[in-house]
């Protein structure tokens, strides 16, 4: 068997698992940077309605008059949409590859986790949850098609209306989804850095600490505004 000839090549390195992982790492990094900016905007809720709505409005006029009104916003949205689609495409392709690499019939009867973290364990299903949440989230707070507590032209009021105590299930879904995002980032940021070739043995602890730190900051930063509404700190 050692002397068997190599099979004819169908694979190319540009479509290899490593290239797919690199695409995931780069698009993931774009999305993480976006999340941090998004979180910063959300925290303006604590500066009052004027500051929050003013910030939301200023995003529409960013780059104006050089760009048409909403121009920057739409370029930004297209970049995000492309990132999400590439990220999901690569994830699904790699998922299918992993299933082919160890088909269901060949799974171990006894499984034991030796090194893997809980966050790495939840990457795939957690990712699906996050994707579903993003759809709901846009319908809820961007387009306002789903409007528990009433529609409003003010982003501040949309937020306050949507997370009132009587809509506890909206808040609960939001909290679970943000925790899923946090877990996704905990492993995702580390994995992206390793994929991009940054990992070295002496840096491994530091890279994991960075991933954990960003994941915690993003999780807490996104949980504060809706919970503040639910518990009546912002109204």
């Amino acid at each position: 068997m050692a002397n068997s000839t190599l099979t004819k090549k169908r694979s190319t390195a540009y479509g290899s698992t490593v290239a797919l992982k690199t695409a995931m790492a780069i698009t993931g990094a774009i999305l993480v940077l976006y999340l941090i900016a998004h979180m910063y905007g959300n925290l303006k809720i604590f500066s009052g309605q004027e500051a929050f709505d003013g910030y939301a409005h200023s995003l529409r006029e960013l780059g104006y008059p050089m760009l048409p009104e909403n121009g920057f916003l739409w370029i930004f949205r297209l970049v995000l949409l492309a990132s999400v689609l590439i990220h999901i495409y690569a994830a699904v392709t790699l998922w299918a590859r992993a299933r082919r690499a160890r088909p269901a019939a060949q799974r171990y009867k006894v499984n034991k986790r030796v090194a893997r973290s809980y966050s790495s364990y939840t990457m795939r299903y957690g990712g699906v949850l996050v994707a579903l949440f993003v759809v709901f989230h846009i319908l809820h707070l961007t387009t306002n098609d789903i409007a528990p507590g009433g529609r409003s032209d003010s982003p501040y009021e949309r937020l306050v209306n949507g997370f009132q105590p009587e809509f506890w299930y909206v808040t609960l879904f939001y909290v679970l989804s943000v925790i899923a995002v946090g877990l996704h980032l905990r492993h995702g940021i580390w994995s992206a850095l390793a994929t991009l070739g940054v990992n070295m043995s002496r840096r491994q602890g530091m890279l994991n600490a960075i991933a954990l730190g960003i994941a915690l900051i993003v999780t807490v930063g996104f949980l504060l505004p809706p919970l503040a509404v639910t518990f009546g700190l912002v109204s």
Partner: peptide, 14 residues
């Protein structure tokens, strides 16, 4: 890497 993919090994998720 091409041969590794050819052999149906999965991708690395670190």
């Amino acid at each position: 890497i091409n041969q590794q993919d050819e052999e149906d090994f999965g991708g690395c998720s670190n």
